[in-house]
Amino acid sequence: MQLSETGRQRGAHLMLISAVLDMAQAVPVPNPRPLAPPGLDKPINTILAWAKWGVIVAGVAGLFICGAQMAIGRKNRSSFAADGASGIPWVLGGLSLAATASGIVGMFLR
């Protein structure tokens, strides 16, 4: 049984595509590390340090506010105390996200 001309062309095309894909997989893809533009290292590090400091201040303030709500709501205001207690996981979640932000972003830039 003979293949038609169209079948032979399809087979040749598939072999060519397979060969090209094999060669493409053999070529290493360059993956340079992130590099700051010249002159922006220090200003960006200063901005990131200020942001980190701001997150720490906001986290401490958030925990103080949650503690105050719980202390004030202890007597006859149980929903106020519950709001304070339910805010603690949100504050800790925000602090955890800020602490792991560089690792999370670094994971996507590999």
Rank of each mutant, 00 (worst) to 15 (best):
109 L>P: 01
86 S>D: 03
63 L>D: 02
54 G>W: 01
78 S>K: 14
19 A>N: 08
91 V>P: 01
29 V>E: 10
14 L>F: 11
44 I>M: 01
52 K>L: 08
21 L>F: 10
27 V>T: 08
1 M>W: 13
76 N>G: 07
18 S>W: 15
50 W>Y: 10
70 M>G: 04
39 G>R: 09
83 D>V: 07
26 A>E: 07
63 L>W: 05
106 G>S: 08
48 L>Y: 00
110 R>F: 09
82 A>Q: 12
63 L>A: 04
19 A>H: 13
9 Q>F: 12
88 I>V: 15
43 P>G: 02
25 Q>E: 11
95 L>I: 09
61 A>K: 01
12 A>V: 09
39 G>M: 11
30 P>Q: 15
104 I>C: 06
69 Q>C: 05
3 L>A: 11
20 V>Q: 14
84 G>C: 05
93 G>E: 01
84 G>H: 04
19 A>I: 04
25 Q>R: 14
50 W>N: 04
33 R>Q: 14
2 Q>S: 14
98 A>V: 00
57 V>S: 03
1 M>I: 06
104 I>V: 14
48 L>K: 04
108 F>V: 15
78 S>C: 03
86 S>Q: 11
47 I>T: 04
35 L>G: 10
60 V>S: 02
74 R>N: 04
13 H>W: 14
44 I>A: 09
93 G>L: 15
7 G>R: 08
31 N>I: 13
48 L>G: 02
22 D>W: 08
51 A>L: 15
29 V>G: 05
39 G>H: 05
55 V>D: 06
61 A>C: 07
20 V>S: 11
74 R>K: 13
24 A>L: 15
44 I>T: 11
110 R>H: 10
24 A>H: 06
1 M>D: 14
81 A>V: 03
103 G>I: 02
7 G>Q: 15
35 L>I: 14
95 L>A: 13
59 G>H: 04
97 L>R: 00
28 P>R: 04
79 S>W: 13
23 M>S: 06
30 P>G: 06
102 S>R: 00
27 V>G: 02
32 P>N: 13
10 R>Q: 12
101 A>I: 01
109 L>G: 06
67 G>H: 03
82 A>D: 07
109 L>N: 12
102 S>Q: 14
67 G>R: 09
41 D>L: 09
53 W>V: 05
48 L>Q: 00
85 A>T: 06
12 A>L: 13
20 V>F: 10
92 L>W: 07
17 I>G: 12
25 Q>T: 01
78 S>A: 10
51 A>H: 03
52 K>G: 14
88 I>Q: 03
92 L>E: 02
28 P>W: 02
26 A>G: 11
38 P>M: 10
31 N>Q: 13
108 F>P: 01
68 A>G: 00
58 A>Y: 08
41 D>W: 00
99 A>N: 03
99 A>C: 01
104 I>L: 11
73 G>C: 05
26 A>Y: 05
23 M>I: 12
49 A>V: 00
49 A>F: 07
82 A>N: 00
81 A>S: 14
92 L>N: 02
92 L>C: 11
63 L>M: 12
42 K>P: 00
17 I>P: 00
69 Q>Y: 03
83 D>A: 12
